[in-house]
């Protein structure tokens, strides 16, 4: 459970950029969370709500966090089959050989943010 510290990283990136651009209070933050990126969306939402409440000068009251989930996908280098990597991440369900490579699902990015211009 390190979503508080991850949210701290997310908001630091947003605030640094907003400060450089002269943007005031943040109204919306959009992030991409991969299914196997080790971050839990619910815990991120909770962390966002806590930060928003603690920093009323940085966020508008209705500031929202939008999470775009990125599905995890792996592809077999032998047969090309794409499959959902669960526990046996590298095991191709067709070949039954650990010949799969994760192609998506590890992304953890700040996509964008919205804010009002500083008065």
């Amino acid at each position: 459970m390190h979503e508080m510290s991850l949210m701290g990283d997310i908001l630091q990136l947003v605030h640094e950029d907003a400060a450089a651009k002269g943007i005031g209070r943040i109204e919306k933050v959009e992030i991409i969370v991969g299914e196997i990126s080790n971050a839990m969306p619910d815990a991120l939402r909770m962390a966002f709500a806590i930060f928003r409440e603690q920093n009323p000068d940085l966020f508008s009251e209705a500031a929202e966090l939008v999470i775009h989930l990125e599905e995890a996908k792996a592809e077999c280098v032998l047969c090309g089959r794409q499959y959902k990597p669960d526990q046996k991440i590298a095991l191709c369900p067709s070949c039954q050989i650990p010949s799969g490579k994760v192609i998506t699902g590890e992304t953890f990015q700040v996509l964008s943010y919205e804010g009002s211009n500083r008065q």
């Binding site: 991850l6 907003a18 651009k21 919205e114 804010g115």
Partner: peptide
């Protein structure tokens, strides 16, 4: 105003 970052969270 919307700003696109596309920055890794762990940058």
């Amino acid at each position: 105003m919307k700003v696109t970052l596309r920055t890794d969270v762990l940058t």
